[in-house]
Write a protein that binds this DNA or RNA. Structure first.
Lengths: 196, 196
DNA sequence: CCACATTATGTTAGTTATGACATATGTTTA
DNA sequence: TAAACATATGTCATAACTAACATAATGTGG
């Protein structure tokens, strides 16, 4: 059974290492990569990314090369060191706590009996739409991945496999979320017979 | 379209108000209530609850009565004020951002191509079990609710309806999560033909 | 009888995360 | 021509959150 060892960095640090394990990137690029699809399950703003990169560098887990640019501001391109790769691998073996979720909409659902049912139903319908839109994004991401990666997206040693796994999670999550919103909307409208 | 108004308190504050809208509770009881089922989507420790209650009291959203006990330490029993109920209702109409998820296991999945597939598969199987256990808890919670609440759990004006909604979300979430873990484990073991 | 758990309420130090401020260059759009 | 946008890297004040410290009464099990 894996044991939770003393961490070499924060979880955000491992997120950055996981990105750099695939290719070299600047802080700016890492910040943008912390959107779709990884960032959909771990996110940060540049104000967190830059200091974290500095810490990772001090810890010897990443190194950077200053790239001078004439047309744009210069940038620091970071890469994973051997120590960084080892730390990332070690983290994968550590025990992981199930996520502690904080979801304001579910919290509102708990008090929804105090709200106007018609307005609440409309609100839930809007959220259903939002999550359907996210679902569509993930699904088209998976389609693109199938084009790009082919069979390698099923091979556990391939970096594409990691993207595949995250996209699958996103697809399941968004589908379930949107179904729940829709179910709740129907209950609120009193057309819940169909939903039972 | 609902607009995000200036908040009267933090989200944790609304969680506490939502609990107090149902019945009077002490800080200690609120902390424990911030487990199943509400707390499964919003949690806090007592070190956050007590100061937040003090702030809510200063803001006039809750009031308390000191209950002296001989066999146990005295306690402060908090109740919702009219202003508190109004603030809670107003919050329900505010726009809600979709939750920004932070899930370390999904983050690990992104880098899982660097791990030993056999060990990783075992890890995912353990997580599948954890989420199946949570699923069972939610399902038995729903069964108990059906006994207690009867038809009222389908009525949008009933406090039970809020519990019902949260439990439904929990059931869907945990089922989906556990399915994903299982799917990923099969992929890692190379028995993914069944999973495609 | 000692250790531990439960009830009960707080504080404090530290970490993590957010939103705004700050600066600089070049390109595109209205 | 002015404004907005993209690239690029940082800082800072505050807010939110965690883990540990602190206290105190009673009940329970070994």
């Amino acid at each position: 059974m894996p044991v939770r060892a003393k961490a070499a960095t924060t979880t955000l640090g491992y997120a950055l290492l996981g990105l750099l394990a695939r290719e070299e990137r600047s802080g700016y690029e890492l910040t943008h990569a912390l959107k779709n699809p990884v960032g959909y399950f771990w996110f940060a703003q540049h104000s967190q990314v830059y200091p974290e990169l500095a810490r990772l560098e001090t810890a010897g887990l990443v190194a950077y090369t200053l790239v001078e640019q004439s047309d744009r501001p210069d940038k620091k391109v970071y890469r994973l060191t051997d120590a960084g790769r080892a730390a990332l691998r070690a983290w994968l073996n550590d025990a992981t706590e199930p996520p502690r979720k904080r979801d304001e909409l579910v919290l509102k659902a708990y008090s929804i009996w105090l709200a106007d049912p018609t307005a609440a139903a409309q609100m839930m319908r809007e959220h259903a739409q939002t999550h359907l839109a996210h679902l569509a994004e993930f699904q088209s991401g998976l389609s693109r991945l199938e084009q790009e990666a082919g069979e390698t997206l099923w091979q556990p040693e391939s970096p594409w496999f990691g993207v595949h796994a995250v996209l699958r999670r996103g697809i399941g999550y968004e589908r379930e979320y949107s179904d729940w919103c829709e179910w709740l909307a129907q209950c609120l409208e009193g057309t819940q017979e169909a939903a039972r």
